[in-house]
Structure formats: structure tokens, C-alpha cells
């Protein structure tokens, strides 16, 4: 009877509390350091995602160069109800600046505005909020440009033109909508291509496969599909293979995480449009440091894209692949 429940429970509590002191040193670059060292906090949209990890790599490198410390935090899911408590806690810890990828344009508005009101410089990275006027800077990929880039990729793959289709995720996702719009603009401006519109796969590969099968039944001469995310690309490839048209229809995917790169190497997709998360991070740190020092900042910055294909994946495209660790 030595290990009574109560004692066990208490011990667990003490253990949990002490273990965190142990891991504090190793995992984060936060520290009390010199008083002049700027303290930055980076709040990811979701912890562990390669896109945000790549961004974190850029941020860490830039911060090191600038002599700043970074504490990186993120919710387990891309969910404002999970991100808000983290933001509130970060604000309580009073860093000099926050770099954040807000998970919802409305839900994160008030907490971030409160952070800015508390004297913390806020830099929005990748995503934004409804009214970003309080932020020192907002840095994001030019998603519309990304959509246009996707169209250019299809044009490279099928120079003679033809019918093109978009398989997106869900309606109402601002970044996806912008990509679709960019693609649409490009396709409509080019008379050799016919734009068949956008279909929503709701993140379900089976749904995407069905949509593509149906589209191919209606228009057997489709030459290219822009699949807005990994699941859409998977399903699209399945649908095309079912119709036996893998030589005729080219697929362009978005983002360049390990899953997408594997699809490219396996020939599921023929091209990827990679964002530049590390560059977003680097520029975010630059803007944050400027804001801390009271210098003027650039309110809005748009970063570019890189087409990755089977040809350049082992060459100059390699550095654009998202990283799962720095």
C-alpha cells in the first residue's frame, strides 16, 4: 500500500512540472539572455506541418542573424479554438513581436488586436485577418499569382492547348479561392485553352476521383487538371487512371511537402507549384525587427512561387521542397 493513488497522482504532477524544466533548454531557443536581445514568438497555423516547419527554419535563421530569440508554438490542428488560447498565453509572456499564421480571419482578429494594443508588434505570415491594420506587416504568397503559375505549368506540359479543369478543396477557403481565380484568369486569357470551371472535392480523394471521372465522361479531351491540394491530386490521378487517360491529362499540384514531392516522383502529378515559406519567414523577421526598432515597415509583402517538375526536382527545384526539420 505504499503507492497510494493520491501519492501516485501527486508524483505525476510533480513529474510533469519538473520534466518541463528539463526539456525547456533543449527544445526552444528562448532564454533570458541579454536584455537587448529582441524576443520573438512564432505561432504556426498547425504544429508539425512541413509548410510551417520550413517557415520556422527561415525564421530561426533570420532571427539568429539578427541576434533575436524565437519561441515557436502552434496548435495541434488548424483550428482557431485551439490557436486562440495559445495567442493569449503568448501575449501574457510579453514578447517584443509575434509572427503568426492566423487560423481564421474573424476569430483571430480580436486576440491579435489585443496583442498589438499591449505593445507587441504583430507580423502576419501566410494567412491574414479581416482588418490587418494593426499589424506591422502582412507577408503572404501571392496566391492569385500561384494559380496563374499553375496554369503556366499546364501550358508548359500541354503547349497545344485544350480543356482544363480545377479540383479544389472546399469553397470559402480564401487562399484556395485566390489560386482558382488566378488559374481562371490565366486560362481565360489564353484562347487556345478552354476553362471548364472548378469542382470541390471536400478533401476526399474518392470524391475527387468521382468528379474527374464524370468530367472526363462529359469532356473526354481534357488536357490538364489543377489539383489544389494533395488529396485532390490523389483522387484526380485515380480518376484519370480509371479512364485510361494518364498520357493525355496532365496534373499540376500545389505545395511541395514530402507527400506532394512523392506524388511528383511517382508520376501521379507532373508539376508542383511550391510556395516559399522560408522566404516568408525571413522577411517576417526582418519586418518584425524593423518594427521593434521603430523603423518603418512594409505593410504588405507578397512572395513568389517556383514550378517544380521531374526535370528540376534534383536540381534547382530541390531547395524549394518543404522541410520536415531544419
Amino acid at each position: 500500500m505504499k503507492l497510494t493513488p493520491k501519492v501516485t497522482l501527486l508524483a505525476a504532477g510533480v513529474l510533469a512540472a519538473t520534466s518541463l524544466t528539463a526539456c525547456a533548454g533543449g527544445t526552444a531557443s528562448a532564454g533570458s539572455g541579454g536584455a537587448t536581445q529582441p524576443k520573438l514568438t512564432f505561432i504556426q497555423g498547425v504544429a508539425g506541418d512541413e509548410f510551417y516547419v520550413s517557415m520556422q527554419c527561415g525564421i530561426d535563421a533570420a532571427a539568429k542573424a539578427a541576434g533575436a530569440t524565437v519561441n515557436t508554438q502552434g496548435p495541434a490542428k488548424f483550428d482557431p479554438t485551439l490557436q486562440k488560447p495559445i495567442v493569449d498565453s503568448v501575449v501574457a509572456s510579453q514578447p517584443d513581436a509575434i509572427l503568426i499564421a492566423p487560423t481564421d480571419v474573424a476569430a483571430m482578429q480580436a486576440p491579435l488586436k489585443a496583442a498589438a494594443a499591449a505593445g507587441i508588434k504583430v507580423v502576419l505570415v501566410d494567412t491574414t485577418v479581416e482588418d490587418p491594420s494593426f499589424a506591422a506587416s502582412a507577408i503572404a504568397s501571392d496566391n492569385k499569382g500561384g494559380g496563374l503559375e499553375a496554369f503556366k505549368a499546364i501550358k508548359n506540359l500541354s503547349p497545344s492547348g485544350g480543356k482544363v479543369l480545377v479540383i479544389s478543396t472546399d469553397p470559402g477557403v480564401s487562399t484556395a479561392d485566390a489560386r482558382v481565380a488566378g488559374f481562371e484568369d490565366g486560362a481565360k486569357a489564353d484562347s487556345s485553352f478552354e476553362y471548364l470551371g472548378v469542382q470541390y472535392s471536400h478533401n476526399d480523394p474518392a470524391e475527387a476521383a468521382k468528379l474527374v471521372s464524370a468530367a472526363l465522361a462529359k469532356d473526354p479531351d481534357i488536357v490538364g487538371v489543377f489539383a489544389a491540394n494533395t488529396f485532390a491530386a490523389e483522387g484526380t490521378a485515380t480518376g484519370i487512371r480509371q479512364a485510361g487517360k494518364q498520357d493525355q491529362v496532365k496534373i499540376v499540384g500545389f505545395d511541395a511537402g514530402p507527400a506532394q514531392v512523392k506524388q511528383l516522383k511517382d508520376g501521379v502529378v507532373q508539376a508542383l507549384i511550391a510556395q516559399e515559406p522560408a522566404s516568408i519567414g525571413t522577411q517576417g523577421v526582418d519586418q518584425a525587427i524593423k518594427a521593434i526598432n521603430g523603423e518603418s515597415t512594409q505593410k504588405e509583402i507578397q512572395t513568389g512561387f517556383k514550378q517544380i517538375t521531374a526535370e528540376n526536382i534534383s536540381g534547382d527545384g530541390a531547395q524549394y521542397v518543404y522541410k520536415s526539420s531544419c
Binding site: 526539456c23 508554438q73 495559445i86 498565453s89
Partner: peptide, 15 residues
């Protein structure tokens, strides 16, 4: 409280 404390102390979110 654990989450809040971890964020403030600066521990990786996974912990």
C-alpha cells in the same frame, strides 16, 4: 494551465 505555462516557458507544443 499546462498549455499556458508551456507556451510562456517556451516549450515545444508537442510536449
Amino acid at each position: 494551465v499546462l498549455q499556458n505555462g508551456f507556451v510562456i516557458v517556451g516549450i515545444q507544443p508537442f510536449w
